[in-house]
Design a binder for these strands. Sequence first.
DNA 1: TCACCATGTATGTTATTTTTGACATGACAT
DNA 2: ATGTCATGTCAAAAATAACATACATGGTGA
Lengths: 73, 73
Amino acid sequence: MAKPTAITNDLRRLRFEADEMTQAELAKRVGVTRQTILAIEQGKYSPSLEVAFKIAQVFGVPLEQAFQYPGEG
Amino acid sequence: MAKPTAITNDLRRLRFEADEMTQAELAKRVGVTRQTILAIEQGKYSPSLEVAFKIAQVFGVPLEQAFQYPGEG
DNA sequence: TCACCATGTATGTTATTTTTGACATGACAT
DNA sequence: ATGTCATGTCAAAAATAACATACATGGTGA
């Protein structure tokens, strides 16, 4: 909803914990382009709900473990 | 990512369980317009991750309890 | 009947997300 | 030195989410 998104994520950590999966590999599995993964990791914007779900699914974690919304806990 | 979104939600049920909160009231609390809530309830499109988080927050439930992604388990 | 409220519909506009392609950099191996 | 790989940057365009406004409908109550 905003340019500097308030949502943070742990994609980077999750990728490295997942056998150092590359951005390209993650992008392929999620079904988006590499630039999209990169932009999300950098916090340029937050992904759509669908993409967020898919990312969490690839890592096998609940969505809230991949993406955090401040004020949530 | 597609027009007919694969994501389903329980906004309607959650609203009624929350003392029959109206669409307008939910919209106000979330910080979006009534049309946005209506469109989401009708599955016209899925909300942004940020709006999804806020909605779950209003109802005091985890995001996955408000929105479901098929194939999640 | 009349007013009000919640919901739904319709249309158009703006903002944001996502895509694609091209190019730059540092690390590493040949 | 050359090639490859992962990452990062930039920019334009397409797709989708969100906005605003107006209007329609069914229910409820005065």
